[in-house]
Design a binder for these strands. Structure first.
Length: 363
RNA sequence: CGGGAUGUAGCUCAACUUGGCAGAGCUAUGGACUGUAGAUCCAUCGGUUGCCGGUUCAAAUCCGGCCAUCCCGACCA
């Protein structure tokens, strides 16, 4: 595969790439550059994690990327996920791996690493301190939004370890590319700034889209300061901790249909519309065509072969929200089904699922 | 260790001074209106008033003790 093809694949994954020029240069230098994404093992797997992420990964692997999955157990601990109980977090990490296997992630091409395995390394902490020493308190404070919490929710000094440790991870994992969600932008930018100062490299940042939650992004473009934009993203993204506005890989077809039906979906409007968001980032990434069945009185069946075509039809009013919803439930169910089934049929997977589900309830 | 403040519905808070059926807003749920959702209107759910005891016919309210959180100070560095 030539460089242009590889770039095309990676560009398709990145909603933002810093910088495209550096990406090209990297691909020219390395046949198999290393990329990573980190996850706090917290609750049950939802669409962004169990469906979307594996889809992106498929293209990255195709492009020759060597991918490292960072199970950020210590980070979940710092962030008080699952009562800050490291045992529960470790169990959830194992469940996460199981989700990915079920989702068809080739485990021979992806490396799973636990953060806690690196924590007894003096080099790691030496690096953390060096990063902390070239980072101002103000800068670290701004980066705290990567924890997905707002200012009032954080009161522990431990939070300040989070961004510097995350930057340290990048160099620990020897990542040429940081391929995380757009909400992790601040840590990655910090790494680019700090890397060269400390004799490391400047990672290329390929940030993927954040799927929006079922309630939609209703706020009318608060173009104010950067922090409130971060907050807006935190409020808008599909989050495991807000079950009512998320779809999980364990949801039955009926549950999916009910949730989709209750989703925010203003007619003819694209901005902040979760249904259009899923069509673009899930359906057309996985399928070549989206078929929509309608009764004759509503215009009869219709089919779209690209997102652009669908969006055009929606804006023009040729596609009613309810028809889109009905079809969406079927397609999402199709995507979730293999993962859901895996946890139904394989007993060891089911046991993990049951445990993690318990953690949710206890919370 | 000491001083102060706070603790009431899932969330934000009223009611405490002067004891008398524990309330509002938001959220949630259900209807109305829309061929979805949202918005709007209507209705409903929601409570061991942090815990234990005391005074009283009657305690969220007054008194005592305890617990938790926050602020300030001291001790120790």
């Amino acid at each position: 595969m030539d460089i242009d093809e590889r770039i095309k694949l990676i560009t398709g994954v990145g909603e933002e790439i810093v910088t495209p020029e550096e990406l090209r240069q990297l691909l020219e230098e390395k046949k198999n550059p290393i990329a990573y994404d980190g996850f706090e093992p917290s609750g049950l797997a939802h669409l962004p994690f169990g469906v979307f992420r594996p889809l992106l990964l498929k293209d990255l692997i195709k492009a020759g990327i060597k991918f490292k999955i960072w199970l950020a157990d210590w980070f979940a601990w710092i962030n008080n996920k699952l009562d800050g109980d490291l045992d529960k977090i470790r169990t959830t990490a194992d469940y996460f791996i199981e989700v990915w296997k079920a989702a068809g992630v080739p485990t021979n091409k992806v490396e799973f690493l636990y953060a806690s395995d690196a924590m007894d390394s003096i080099e790691y902490w030496n690096r953390v301190v060096r990063i902390a020493k070239v980072t101002t308190v103000a800068r670290a404070t701004r980066a705290l939004t990567i924890m997905g919490r707002k200012e009032g929710e954080m009161s522990e000094v431990a939070a300040y370890f989070y961004p510097v440790m995350q930057v340290s991870d990048i160099f620990h994992l020897e990542a040429d590319i940081t391929q995380l969600g757009l909400d992790q932008r601040r840590a990655n930018m910090l790494a680019r700034e700090v890397g060269p100062k400390l004799g490391f490299w400047k990672p290329v940042v390929v940030s993927h889209h954040m799927l929006i939650n079922l309630e939609g992004a209703k706020e009318p473009e608060g173009l104010t300061d950067e922090v409130s934009r971060d907050y807006h993203l935190i409020d808008t993204k599909m989050s495991k901790s807000k079950p009512s506005s998320s779809i999980f890989i364990h949801d039955t077809f009926d549950e999916i249909r009910t949730k989709i039906n209750a989703a925010y979906c203003p007619p003819k409007e694209v901005q902040g519309n979760p249904l259009l968001d899923y069509a673009k980032h899930l359906i057309f990434r996985a399928f070549d065509e989206m078929k929509i069945e309608r009764k004759e009185k509503f215009g009869g069946d219709i089919s779209f072969t690209s997102y652009e075509e669908l969006e055009k039809g929606y804006v023009a009013g040729n596609l009613h929200p309810m028809d889109l919803k009905n079809s969406m439930a079927v397609y999402i169910d199709k995507m979730v089904e293999p993962v859901r089934n895996h946890f139904e049929s394989k007993s060891s997977a089911r046991a993990l699922y049951e445990q993690v589900k318990e953690f949710q309830v206890t919370r």
